[in-house]
Every structure is written in structure tokens, then in C-alpha cells.
Design a protein around this nucleic acid. Structure first.
Lengths: 144, 144
DNA sequence: TATCATTTTGAGACAGCTTATCAATTTCAA
DNA sequence: TTGAAATTGATAAGCTGTCTCAAAATGATA
């Protein structure tokens, strides 16, 4: 596991170096745990890491996840009242198809839609960092 | 103004009827004010309505805007630490391009994207009722 | 390896936004 | 008109995330 996320570790070190920040045991630990997830909240990570280090503070998790955002390793996303941190290196970005009947959620990806999004953004002078697409409706079972 | 938003008023009444809820002076007032906006926060509406009714409580605004969401008249959007309530009936449907630097919001419509969404939904056996598409990034001004 | 200025941490206080509580008031069906 | 049920307003409480600061860790330098 130590040499599993070499690339991301290197990216973090580069960011730290550029900003006079230091590599700490906590940052390594949090990065390692973060890279195993697709997306996670600070709170969830807090509980998860409490097992291996009961003294790791919640504030440190927040600080570190925000650091990862600055370093380009994570992306924050506001979901309801919570913030989810997405693992950018996890290639499969996906959108959601949500059934308002049974609350089933189907994930999907559509490159054509993503391409058109870029187009719209460019036309308006925007550079997209992230996006969110949710389709609400009824699944075949609930339609009856 | 009284007969300006007849359709939305009817939709609200239908929802109220279906759920044993009551039509109150406050709900009428808030609906009327809400429909004049494209999107607004509860706090902003609180200040705006304070002029005509200084005793209208903030909690009532929140409750009522959430009621509008249930009734399908509004859609909540979480941005940063605030929640913005979008007027769904406002000039058809539109999606958002949101600058994470200055919080500027640009609206857009793209038929091709909508068509592809239908396609994705159909492929998964879904019938779309509504959707939400938000692109987050930096506008040209904030990129520098 | 030892030194030490600088950064980071952990714990809890704090702040901003939203919801819960509850007595008083309003609605609306009968 | 009456009365059960829902709603309101004021505020307390809750939740998520950030700030504070003394103590600890880091890492550049000698």
C-alpha cells in the first residue's frame, strides 16, 4: 500500500514544496485513506480513521481535505448540508438518475453530454472545474 | 398581481389539498414574492418581506420555501454554506453555470443536452420529470 | 546529529445557516 | 359558529465547518 499511490503522493509533495508546507504523518495517513474512496465526507473519514488513530482531530481532516482541493487531488461538492470530497484521480465521473418513486439511484456517464457542457462553458467564458447532473423521474417499475 | 400567478397558485392549492395542509396569508404572500424572483435565499426573502410584514418569521420563510419544493414549484440548490431556492416556473427550464470565485450565475439552455438526457433515461427505463444541471468553475474574470 | 524558526496539530470555542420546539393563533370542514 | 388540526413567530437548539492557541512536529541549516 505504501507505494500504491505514488503519483498522488508526488503531486501532494510538489504542492507542499511550492507553498512552504510540511509533510506530516497525518497528511500521509489522510491521503492514503482518501485515495481509497471515490468520494467521502470529512465526518465519515473522521470515524473511519479513528480506528487507526483515535487522536486525529476533525479539524485536521477538514484542513487536509481542503489542502487536497488546493493541490488538485480532491474536489469539494456541496450535497444537501454536507460537503463531499471527490477523489479526482478516480476516473469514473458519474451522474445520477434518480427515481422519485422508490429513490433508486442509477449512475451513468455520457461523454457527449460532458463535451457539450464544455462547449457551453467555453461559450460563456467559463472554465469548468466540476459539475453536477441529476435526472429525476420514475423508473420502469414505479411508472405503473 | 392577484391573478398573475394563477397557475402556480393552483399547483400550490392542489399540493395543500393532497396533504391536509392549509392555505395561509403567509403562504400566499411568500408565493407571490417568490414567483417574482428567479432564485433567492431565505434570508434575502426575509429582508425583502420585512417591509410589508415586519412580523413574518424567518422560520416561516424556510418552512414555506421547503413546502414549495415539495409542491414542485421550487428547487433548492446548495451553494457554499447557503441554500438558494430556484423558481422552477421562471421562463421555462434553465441550467446554471456557476462561478466559484465570485458566485456569479449564468443561465443557459441546451436542447442537445436535454435530448441526450432523455436518451440516457430511456436506455435505463426512466421517464424524466425534471432535472438539474450545474456547471461549477471560474468565469473569465476570476480566472486571473 | 543538534538546533530552532516555522508549520501543524488537537481540542474546543465559535460562527453561519437551517430546523425543532411550543404556546398562541389561524384555518376550514362540519 | 364551533373545534380539531395545522400554522405561526420567537427563539432555542443542531449541524457543519472554521478559528484559536498552546503544544508538538517538521525540516532546513549548521
Amino acid at each position: 500500500m505504501a507505494n500504491k499511490h505514488v503519483q498522488e503522493m508526488a503531486a501532494l509533495k510538489e504542492h507542499l514544496g511550492k507553498h512552504q508546507l510540511k509533510l506530516t504523518r497525518q497528511r500521509e495517513m489522510i491521503l492514503s485513506a482518501f485515495l481509497r474512496q471515490e468520494h467521502i465526507t470529512a465526518e465519515a473519514m473522521y470515524h473511519q480513521l479513528a480506528k487507526s488513530d483515535p487522536h486525529l482531530g476533525l479539524a485536521t481532516i477538514y484542513r487536509t481535505l481542503n489542502l487536497f482541493c488546493d493541490a488538485g487531488l480532491a474536489q469539494a461538492r456541496h450535497f444537501g448540508s454536507q460537503t463531499k470530497y471527490d477523489n479526482v484521480s478516480h476516473k469514473g465521473h458519474h451522474d445520477h438518475l434518480i427515481c422519485t418513486g422508490c429513490e433508486k439511484i442509477v449512475e451513468f456517464e455520457n461523454e457527449e453530454i460532458e463535451r457539450l457542457q464544455e462547449e457551453v462553458a467555453a461559450r460563456n467564458g467559463f472554465t469548468i472545474k466540476t459539475h453536477r447532473l441529476e435526472l429525476y423521474g420514475l423508473c420502469s417499475r414505479c411508472r405503473h
